[in-house]
Design a protein around this nucleic acid. Sequence first.
RNA 1: UCCCCAGUAGCUCAGUCGGUAGAGCAGAUGGCUGUUAACCAUCGGGUCCGUGGUUCGAGUCCGCGCUGGGGAGCCA
Length: 457
Amino acid sequence: MKRSLISDLMKSDIVQTGVLIQGWVRTRRDSKGFSFIELNDGSSLKNMQVLADETLPGYNEVVLKLTTGSALAVEGDLINSPGAGQRWEIKARNIRVYDIAPESYPLQKKRHSDEYLRTIAHLRPRTNKYSAAFRIRSELAYGIHKFFKEKSFTYIHTPIITASDCEGAGQMFRVTTLEPTMQKPVDFTQDFFGKQSSLTVSGQLEAELFALALGNVYTFGPTFRAENSNTRRHAAEFWMIEPEMAFCDLSDNMSLAEELIKYVTAHVMEECPDDIDLFARFVEKDLTKQLEKIVGSEFVRLPYRDALLLIEKSGQTFEFEVPFGQDLQSEHEQFLTEDYFKKPVIVYNYPASIKPFYMRLNDDNETVAAMDVLVGRVGEIIGGSQREERLDVLERRMDECGLEKDSYWWYLDSRRFGSVPHSGFGLGFERLVMMVTGIANIRDVIPFPRTPKNIEF
RNA sequence: UCCCCAGUAGCUCAGUCGGUAGAGCAGAUGGCUGUUAACCAUCGGGUCCGUGGUUCGAGUCCGCGCUGGGGAGCCA
């Protein structure tokens, strides 16, 4: 008999005889002469209520011994449930036990704290909240590919191991086959690649090269930062989406960022209504309103200078002041997105001094064509810019940043041979999942999070 | 890396003024009921994070360490 998914059976219009479901027991309730078993197979939040009668073979030895977490196959008939609370149930004809979970099974049929579930990350996808989170994560990933496919972007796989150091994005993890040693200097000519190499902190530079060939491209892959960040929004290994578009200026870039966020948000609201509803009820009370706002309103576009003025004139007391030339603090971002505009805000034209070399210098010679998309609760979800396409300006900026130009010869070549205006950005995938679900900690939106001092599982 | 908070039963947590540990859930046993995180009764269950100190006496006070969380910075 072919296995049916509980999610499909729940949508059935008719009673069905002879169906097979397989899954894990969430709870069992006994009555005189029969038991109810709630079975979940991960296909959706919904459990199938299984009616197990005492006439079943092995009822006393098997059914009455079933514990939360046990694995079963149930053959039976899909019938209308006479009880309140569910439309369908399965009257079992045969129950096959794969495994009885012992009493040491760590998940109970009650609410656990996120902190505890993190210590059993191998089992937490069996809970409602985490199964919902990871179904949404999957659907978001699909939505992103669908968006770019519909816009005729080409999906590029940029390298994960790289030799380009200091791409402007922080500390990198070393990749080496050399034995660990405290001895210095290390002779990297003896190493696997004959050169010092690392895990990528961004696929952007490589994506730019492909944008200057294929027009519109994007990457979607893992990214690594060896920063000692201990916050709810940073992980050492995370996934990033990086579109890169030729013949595209900062304004087009912002438009695409806004369109992408709206598209994928609407996509999961459409495809995962039950899962979203769980988060709206139990995790972030305001979630539905927030998501509707994201999908339905125009994002604010605010030059950096104007952002400073707003913060100054707000009358609010902040812990930090923001003189020109410094980045906005978290509290300022929160003020803009949560208090003042109450919707996503794109801050652009930042001072060149706080942004990396590849961002295009504006005519004022002081700011660059950078943009950050800020959303409530999560903060910076996108960072991007128009890229510096003028070779002389780019080289000057690299000098100012103290970069070794020779090792970027291939990047600079793109400005020598048919250079054009182009733009792109990086979207933090985990932060997107946080935005859409209301989950507050990045460690809870990635299956097995990597953070400082944490690499279990 | 800096600042703040927490660590007590398998899980969630209470523990007063420093006087020797408790509830709910989970588990086991029995009962009841087309049940809905079922319900009722009984029972078992503790390295009070570790370490040193103060004290007649420390879960409780103090020092150090470990782990977790929140905030800040770095950013996606």
